[in-house]
């Protein structure tokens, strides 16, 4: 069994002269929730359309379920469920009929309808016309549609887009449960890092069609997000500055009673505190500032130097 459920090899794509994807290398491990992150226009939707065979790509560039995409489109799609942006719902039909229609097309067993309705929590509303559905319900029905063939892989394109906070939570919980309880691999695209952060185990950050980061979310945290900066308020700033510089600490800023010091590790915060107190300076305020993933993402995609990486 292949370990990666999706692989792209030097994937390029362009519309006319405009290059959309540049040598995109994706490795999506089986069983993961894979966050596919990038600002609007980064090429996320194009990538997803390629993975689903909606856009033509040359042979050998894309492997899904270990199969070459170009020659195995139907076999791949049979094991893949997808929700692309807004779900395709026929508004004049009930939720049940919408599911029934796709069920007929793919030839899934009839009992699967009740199962997916239950998983997505829509059993009670199945008889209502989908034009009466809230955005969150529509989105969950879209996921129910994607789940009909009981696929191993789910591809969800911006599934929380446009939802209110409770809708976002519903969808997020559903995604986590699909991964943990049903063992689905989930390829989840978003332009919101906060979304990916809460559900993903693996992460790729892309911009302008190229991969900027790919790996596990844990590694990203471990290497990038050490507490980097310490803010201090003391009874005597002048003496504090003197003490800290004497002990080779790198002072970034001092303003009135406030000091900003660069840290190499968490334990240095404690040492600085002890040092100051032992030298008769009272410490009123002591806080470490972690660089947020959001800042990191913004800097990365706007090509500013990433501060924490150099620390």
């Amino acid at each position: 069994m292949k370990q990666n459920i999706i692989e792209t090899h030097g994937l390029n794509y362009h519309f006319g002269k405009r290059q959309i994807l540049q040598n995109l290398e994706l490795r999506v491990p089986r069983g993961s929730v894979y966050g596919f992150l990038g600002p609007n226009g980064a090429g996320k939707s194009t990538t997803i359309r390629i993975l689903l065979g909606l856009l033509p790509v040359p042979e050998g560039k894309v492997l899904v379920h270990g199969l070459e995409l170009k020659n195995n489109r139907l076999d791949i799609l049979r094991q893949t469920g997808a929700l692309i942006e807004m779900p395709t719902l026929y508004r004049h039909l009930s939720g049940y009929d919408n599911l029934e229609m796709t069920r007929r097309m793919i030839g899934a067993p009839k009992k699967r309808l009740q199962e997916v309705l239950e998983i997505t929590g829509l059993t009670a509303d199945a008889g209502r016309k989908t034009k009466e559905y809230s955005l969150g319900m529509s989105q969950r029905l879209g996921i129910a549609l994607a789940l009909l063939p009981d696929p191993e892989l789910l591809i969800l394109d911006e599934p929380t887009n446009g939802l209110d906070p409770s809708g976002i939570r519903e969808v997020r919980n559903l995604i986590s449960s699909l991964n943990k309880d049903f063992g689905k691999t989930i390829f989840l695209s978003s332009h919101l890092l906060s979304e990916i952060e809460k559900t993903a185990t693996e992460l790729a950050i892309i911009d302008k069609g190229a991969t900027l980061y790919q790996g596990s979310l844990k590694d990203l945290y471990a290497h990038t997000f050490q507490p980097a900066i310490l803010q201090l308020r003391t009874s005597n700033a002048a003496i504090a500055v003197q003490i800290l510089t004497d002990h080779q600490y790198q002072l970034l800023d001092s303003e009135h009673d406030k000091l900003v010091v660069r840290l190499a590790g968490r334990e240095q915060a404690a040492s600085i505190n002890r040092l100051l107190v032992e030298n008769g300076v009272d410490v009123y305020h002591l806080s470490t500032e972690t660089q947020h993933l959001e800042d990191f993402f913004l800097r990365m995609t706007t090509k500013e130097p990433v501060m924490a990486l150099s620390a």
Binding site: L52, L54, L74, I84, T88, L145
Partner: peptide, 18 residues
């Protein structure tokens, strides 16, 4: 028009059907 209105082409063509 039913398909255009529901933006259903992408869904249809991403189903395992020729």
């Amino acid at each position: 028009g039913i398909e255009h209105k529901a933006n259903g082409w992408k869904h249809l063509y991403a189903l395992p059907l020729p």
